[in-house]
Write a protein that binds this DNA or RNA. Structure first.
Lengths: 336, 336
DNA sequence: CACGGCTACTGTACCGGTCAAGAGACCGAA
DNA sequence: TTCGGTCTCTTGACCGGTACAGTAGCCGTG
């Protein structure tokens, strides 16, 4: 059978193509009676609805928002915190009648999603600010919102108060009386990539420096999953081991706790551990984890409403969401 | 500035629009010299590349594959097993030069992703087979592959051997000598929705029925997260409590273990627990979990290669991936 | 009865590319 | 010289819609 288009339906019913288009896309533009006849004819011919690609071209928008992720997609999906963010984003977009298109950063010059995929706007997440994909997005003049990064003035962004949260965590262990303190944070290579890692480090220092505390810093990549455990073990196995460790994430904190236990140390009796994120497992872990809460779902919602605003022609806002210290049972005053 | 199109570049260089198109999309169709001049002019004019929406219309394909998920997107992203599947799918698609578009099943009749989003093919995942979205996909005649479901003959699908795996799990506890056995499985409401739940139940029965064992079955929804814990507690708190529990998933198994411990029961000394999936946490949990392994990454890869084959005009295949029993330390012979 | 304003529908010009067929130039071989 | 073949580039149709500016008929009003 030949392809069914607006024109075939128009011919069948004896109206103009435009009227058929209106029957589907602007019901108030024609009489209910005619509309019913058109829809009936369309159904009869097996017409599904206006072709999305054609509509996208004619309207100038596609109805879907891109999510630019650079680095491993697996990492993004499998990390609990970023998965929760993605979930929130997709839920929120769905509620606004938009689909989400995942745009991996490409190595193949023949297909660069950031350049070649049709979207109305882009959320930029976990992104190396030097990635060429960002350049494509900008050249395309696509509305964009950067999440967990602060690319530059004038670009909309959604962040959480990483620095403030980290400061609270550091202050908490200081307040408990700790002075020998370790930090397990993310290794970023090359250095300036990870904005939260930078900000959190600044936050920790904001508290430690005035107290005259010089923390021992170990850095570890995300992968492999044992890397953080090994790093923490090394930190805790040395002489003069820290009595408290503040970590870049809850995942690192859990690794640190396991490392401590493997060395026969009790948490928090022998060593206090603080996480970051307040992921779902933090409350139910043993011991329940003291951590810095960020509301990842709110971050997703803010990202969507910000991109919607930018797509709607609004001024690019810079949103900053609060963080909050959640004290549970993985921290205590130092022994002795 | 006016919008830059192929035509403006063509005018500038003094060639036909088609030649400019070729410069971008089929470099072998023109001389290297002219191509360089065209690209230079394009660059000068700030042209980014052929407009994706226009190209999609003209070519008849968009370069992105849809993923139809019905039910909560959050659930899909936050569940470790389905997140791993999504990760594998998106990685694999990226490797083949395609983007992934998440298509939530819509309640808003004005925007139904399954009908209104431009994609070249669709993976159907976690889907209620009665969802109207499926009807839209079929009417659109989109290539599709159903994952973790067996919709009907003639539709391509990717499944794991749920039934065989469940049978192995059940046989394992039988072989250990257990006869009072519980099952913690998924509540599907309405009933026939969840294909893996049905298949696994069949697999358990395949082993229990011939042995004359009548398991005690409790059913629990995914949400809230405490539901499985409560259900397992109820199962284990009753008189004649089971000495072994086989579970629908690792997540349910962990909940069951926690429930057992909350009742003062040791795993596996007092009660053996078997999971399903072999998710990442299974090996490192305490005790390490006996479970049925499915290779979720392979499932993602198979889904992508199958949809690619169908999009390429191939016959719809029905793929079935193997499962395998992984015996760890959460199972032991019954006490006494 | 002329006029303005509504409703319902139509005509035409795009949107920005790709495809398939063709035309001219150049080349080596018969 | 002629012919077929290759390399380049061009021509014209088409992909399947939407935007916008009409137009025709109808109704109420001064």
């Amino acid at each position: 059978m030949a392809k069914v288009t607006l024109q075939s339906i128009a011919d069948r019913v004896g109206v103009s193509r435009m009227t058929v288009s209106n029957a589907f896309s602007r019901p108030d533009q024609l009489s209910a009676d005619l509309r019913a006849r058109i829809l009936a004819a369309a159904d009869e011919l097996g017409y599904v609805g206006p072709d999305p690609a054609a509509r996208a071209l004619a309207r100038g928008r596609t109805g879907s928002v891109g999510l630019l992720i650079n680095g491993s997609l697996s990492e993004a999906f499998e990390d609990a915190v970023s998965a929760a963010f993605l979930a929130s984003v997709s839920d929120e977009l769905a509620g606004r009648g938009m689909a989400l298109t995942v745009m991996p950063s490409s190595s193949d010059p023949a297909f660069v999603p950031a350049r070649d995929v049709a979207v109305d706007g882009v959320l930029v997440y976990i992104c190396d600010p030097t990635a060429p994909d960002l350049g494509w997005l900008e050249r395309r003049n696509l509305p964009m919102v950067v999440v967990d990064h602060n690319l530059r003035e004038g670009t909309a962004s959604v962040n959480v108060d990483d620095r403030g949260g980290a400061r609270l965590a550091a202050q908490h262990v200081l307040d408990l009386g700790h002075r020998r303190i370790g930090i397990v944070t993310l290794e970023t290579d090359p250095e300036p990539l990870n904005y939260p890692a930078r900000e959190r480090m600044l936050g920790w220092r904001d508290a430690f420096d005035p107290a005259g505390v010089e923390p021992v810093v170990v850095r570890t990549p995300y992968q492999p999953p044992t890397a953080a455990y090994d790093a923490a073990r090394e930190l805790l196995a040395g002489p003069d081991r820290p009595t408290a460790v503040v970590c870049f994430s809850d995942a690192f904190a859990f690794a640190t706790i396991r490392a401590a236990e493997s060395l026969g140390l009790q948490v928090p009796a022998d060593v206090s551990v603080v996480g970051f994120d307040d992921s779902r497992l933090a409350a139910s872990s043993r011991p329940p984890l003291t951590t810095v809460r960020q509301n990842v779902a709110a971050k997703g919602r803010a990202a969507v409403s910000t991109i919607a605003a930018v797509m709607g022609g609004g001024q690019p806002e810079q949103v900053m969401l609060p963080t909050e210290l959640v004290v549970r049972e993985s921290t205590a005053p130092p022994a002795g």
